[in-house]
Amino acid sequence: MAFSWVNTVFSNKKPVPPPVLAPTPERENKPPPQESFIKLSSGSMAEPPPPTQPSAPPKEPERRIINPPVLTDESEQSSWSDEITIKARVEKDPLTCTFLVDRPVFEGHSAWFPTSDSDSESPLAQSIFEVKEVCSLLFLDSTISVTRSGSSERKWEEIAKDIGSKVRSHLKSGASVISDEFLTRIPTEEEMREKIQFVIDDEINPGIAAHSGNITLENLTGNTVTISMGGGCQGCAASTITLREGIHKAFRDAVPEIGAILDETDHTAGTNPFFKELPEELKAHAQG
């Protein structure tokens, strides 16, 4: 027990001497154990030994958490046919639907169209924006992420069929997805990395430091940026708002040609994250 010497020194009880151990080869070579508290109790006023701090319980080393891939029936299908298969998945944010195409839509790069006015460099985006509910688009490899307006009465099932048929007919036609001018305007990865790192160091991290949060640029491929959120942001319920309102805007202001911004943080990791599903009122705020 910690501080046991205090009780022994100032109590009237006779201290119990340590048990006498039979000599063993190991013990014989060791110096005798220190018995200072026993000597003190016999009347000496010599300084007691410095109190030992209560020892903290041993901290368990941090363990690696491995996230295995989730297997789906689609992930095991390897057959390739001429018929273009498109599947739609309504995301947790009910105004967003991701279209999964069985072949690349825009390989190597990504493209972000925040409004229907921004589609002039993409014949495919122009075609999709003809569906009146569509608000914004993101092309990334073989996926198209579509955000719709919340005012329409049509359900995603209906809207998604319209979008699916436009994507299918465009890809079948062989027409380009994005103009060559757009591709030539994209800065080099090195230039983009430099600008984004500057925004992170100079603007974003100082801003979220008050919440003990930080973000790290993990990867940049083509014009697709991957970040991770650490510290106070990792398990934070409001990290989606930080991502959309702060990080997206700051990155796109610095490099307008950025396509997808991916967050690879596992916001539910750790033994006790405080991540929770965003409440409806915050979801609405996050969507702007």
């Binding site: 690696r64 491995i66 599947k87 739609a88 999964l100 069929k161």
Partner: peptide, 18 residues
């Protein structure tokens, strides 16, 4: 001995053909 597998996954979002 230093690693664990995450076995918590929320209900997968439904996917439909379009």
């Amino acid at each position: 001995s230093d690693s664990d597998m995450n076995i918590w996954h929320e209900r997968p979002l439904p996917v439909f053909d379009v």
